[in-house]
Design a protein around this nucleic acid. Structure first.
Lengths: 348, 348
DNA sequence: TTGAAAGCGCTACCAA
DNA sequence: TTGGTAGCGCTTTCAA
């Protein structure tokens, strides 16, 4: 039995006392005395249809008067696709380098008409996090760090993501990879130290949480650099405060080290100061090298040698994302995007 | 004339070759052999209705099998409200302090079941930006810096935002204000210097873009602190590099200054090193004070005096936002949330 | 040149 | 206990 639908007129909206309801395109249409379709045509500058200039004006005027703002969710629901690029907030404290990279990328994607959304995942893990991201139906997802597995990628793709990128140490099946393997940083540092005749190499490993995804590969890079040589690698846990640095410096003599790769410039500055205070000569007794090439390292005496890091330009990356979105069938690409080069100053 | 609607059965989805279309709740319903309503009840654990355990199991099983993930936009469109808290990305480079504050806030809001979204506005300005934000229909908006005017607040509210907060130097009409007026930082620094007998006070003003919203009020705070006294204030533009610092240090003698508030610890470290290299004794000839209380300041010799900043806890702030959302009618609140206290070390 | 209406995916009301 | 169905705000055919 067929249903019979009777048109029941809506109660006229003659109650301006209504508590400031949000204006919709229907309200604009009513005020302008046109249909919702016409409103949509005008406000989206649809060139497929010709709307008379007076009508256009009336619609625009009505929209302005009501303070109409289109509803992004409704729009993308109807369209069946969004231009949202999702970037989960990184689980590690973002340094100045990474922050700048991020905002550059955001800007560049914005230029390509994507809406970049940083999503604070607040503790969700693994596939659960992926599901939370998928609910937003992003057209692309850029995941920093290493919290996404092949399962997660599959979840995202099944929910419509046309490209998934990981920014981290390793590639994940099904996703494009922007490999930023910090292993190379440790490797460069150790090669430098070894090349300058150092054989007892200490490696600072920050005690702080969340830095493991950087410190572990950096340490591994050091190990790889000296594998098969007569050099030794000693792991040096260190908290980011003066007391702990003094503790390490106090037993320095007993460690038998003549060089240290201090994770980054900040830890390097901390440790170098402690070593100097404890009577260790830098670089005479011990060479010290950091990473990240912070301005401040140049101010120390001796000036701090460091590993300069180079992240890809936001513009290039945005273009890459755009390409991947437009060709979702393509095979996942791998790009090695972390440049690292030793800047030799005075501390080594 | 009434419309007659005939139920036309959809073509059966017997084409598994379809290019991996995104599963909807209807697909789950079909697979489980129940209605969409039932699917919704089960997956949302609706306690208003009793669904039998076998049915629940079937539905969940079907959802899992299809990899079903609900569509957030559709959901909030239907619900007429979202739990999205929007935070436009700040226009200034976020320091470690602010980054930590941000992620703490994100976490805390997440605990209250809000979805925090950082939106990269990519160059939109003023009301245009506000309109872009409004399209997302956030339940609350937290705007850092000072780019939002009363107009923008009105736009956001008219589009359904139940609370608008500004995090910045001044309150905006209609919005709650978390006042973080950096004027106090300069004021504290100058009072400290003045109290220690300094009368010729230089104030570093970074040449870098985007820092003006901090440096201008900090300078103003210094001015206010010494107004009506015999002390003088000298503005010192300084770029964040060694060459420019050397330039300033070279003409130090001619400036007639015996103290400098160096904007923050980084600029302080830069300038102090340059001054020392140029033969100026710190703090003998010139006292130097920074701000932000970075760890690294303690490593200098002399140890750097600084202004320690205290941002509000993310938890408190999240609670505040939650309260405002639940009581949208309440009058805008103003909270002074930036704490500043001098940490006296050796450089002053 | 404009309008009517279908439908995106979802939930909540009402009826069975 | 379960299902039908209306409708959130929007765009886009198709028809007039």
């Amino acid at each position: 039995m067929p249903y019979v639908m009777v048109q029941i007129p809506k109660p006229p909206a003659d109650e301006p006392l209504a508590p400031r309801s949000v204006p919709t395109s229907a309200d604009v249409a009513r005020l302008a005395g046109v249909s919702r379709a016409t409103v949509s045509y005008v406000l989206n500058n649809a060139d497929a249809v010709r709307i008379s200039e007076p009508t256009r004006r009336r619609v625009r005027e009505a929209a302005r008067e009501l303070g109409y703002v289109p509803h992004a969710a409704a729009r993308s629901l109807r369209a069946g696709r969004s231009r949202t690029v999702l970037m989960p907030a990184p689980s590690f404290p973002a340094g100045p380098l990474y922050s700048r990279f991020l905002s550059e990328l955001q800007w560049a994607l914005g230029r390509l008409d994507y809406t970049v959304v940083q999503y604070g995942t607040a503790g969700a893990h693994g596939d659960e996090a992926a599901r939370a991201w998928a609910e937003l139906r992003p057209v692309a997802v850029l995941v920093p760090g290493s919290g996404l597995g092949p399962q997660g990628v599959e979840i995202l793709k099944r929910s419509g993501a046309r490209a998934v990128f990981t920014l981290g140490p390793e590639a994940v099946e099904g996703a494009h990879a922007l490999l930023m393997d910090h292993e190379i940083v440790g490797h460069r540092a150790a090669r430098h130290l070894y090349g300058r005749g150092r054989r007892g190499i200490g490696v600072v490993v920050p005690a702080e949480d969340g830095l493991g995804i950087f410190s572990t590969p950096r340490l591994e890079g050091v190990r790889r650099a000296v594998r098969g040589t007569d050099a030794t690698v000693t792991e040096l846990p260190l908290a980011y405060d003066e007391r702990d640095a003094a503790r390490v410096a106090a037993r320095w003599g007993s460690l038998g080290l003549d060089a240290v790769f201090a994770y980054n410039d900040e830890y390097a500055m901390l440790l170098m100061r402690a070593l100097q205070d404890a009577g260790t000569d830098v670089p005479g007794d011990t060479a010290v090298i950091g990473a990240d090439d912070l301005m401040l390292g140049r101010l120390l005496r001796p000036r701090l040698s460091t590993v300069h890091l180079e992240l890809p330009s936001g513009r290039d990356l945005a273009a890459l994302v755009d390409r991947a979105v437009n060709d979702p069938g393509a095979a996942p690409e791998r790009h090695e995007v972390l440049g690292a080069a030793v800047v030799h100053r005075e501390s080594t």
